[in-house]
């Protein structure tokens, strides 16, 4: 019976297409987007010129051309579905390319080990294994939990970011493993803002 069932529907061996899933997940929002943009553009025209300039700048920075766009992973803002971070393998290299909130993008080789934090917006990656959670601490001592996402495969790095607004003056970012042990710490006072 097993053999006959095997023949009834042969196994699939086509490659996965996660980017297509993400496109389908965002389809409803994208359909509405032109309408929203048109309404917003009309308002801007009737308001002031700088507002229109901001709208046009919204196209912003996307994934670098060297990114393998057939295999893009994203981190979404849970409430709005907004794409916060896009990551994809780096074509022809051992590394990955990223774009953050359409304001910053780049490509990173795997040989650049360690942990990198960017600010603002607060986002970074680590090649340290086992990172499960992260916290950003402000100069005033307030702690903000970070979203930590590991992407395997050719990306093979763990990303961290803050999904909500965060006070401007950060002291450090601490990443921990599942047991709560500190795996990496970045002194944010030494990180130059590249807004």
């Amino acid at each position: 019976m097993n053999t006959m069932l095997d023949e009834h529907v042969r196994p699939f061996d086509d490659p996965a297409d996660w980017a297509d899933v993400l496109r389908r997940a965002g389809r409803r929002r994208r359909v509405r987007r032109p309408v929203l943009v048109a309404v917003a553009a009309a308002c801007a025209v009737f308001a002031v010129a700088p507002a229109l300039a901001v709208l046009l700048r919204d196209n912003g920075v996307g994934l670098p051309g060297a990114a393998d766009r057939s295999n893009v992973a994203v981190v979404l803002q849970p409430l709005t579905g907004r794409v916060l971070v896009q990551v994809a393998p780096w074509k022809g290299h051992d590394g990955f390319c990223y774009a953050v909130l359409r304001v910053r993008a780049g490509c990173v080789p795997h040989k650049a080990r360690g942990t990198v934090a960017l600010w603002p917006p607060l986002m970074g990656w680590t090649f340290e294994p086992g990172v499960r959670s992260g916290v950003a601490t402000t100069i005033g001592g307030k702690s903000v939990r970070l979203t930590v996402v590991h992407f395997g495969g050719r990306i093979d790095a763990t990303f961290f970011l803050v999904r909500d607004r965060i006070p401007r003056f950060l002291r450090d970012v601490t990443l921990r493993d599942a047991g709560g042990k500190v795996v990496a710490r970045v002194d944010m006072r030494k990180v130059r803002s590249r807004a």
């Binding site: 529907v9 196994p11 699939f12 061996d13 086509d14 996965a16 996660w18 899933v21 992973a73 994203v74 981190v75 979404l76 996402v149 590991h150 992407f151 395997g152 495969g153």
Partner: peptide, 20 residues
């Protein structure tokens, strides 16, 4: 989302076969 992606990448052939 990462968990969904992991599930997708590890169990895709089985999902497709059952759906078919």
């Amino acid at each position: 989302l990462a968990e969904l992606e992991l599930l997708y990448r590890t169990r895709l052939p089985q999902f497709r076969r059952v759906a078919a």
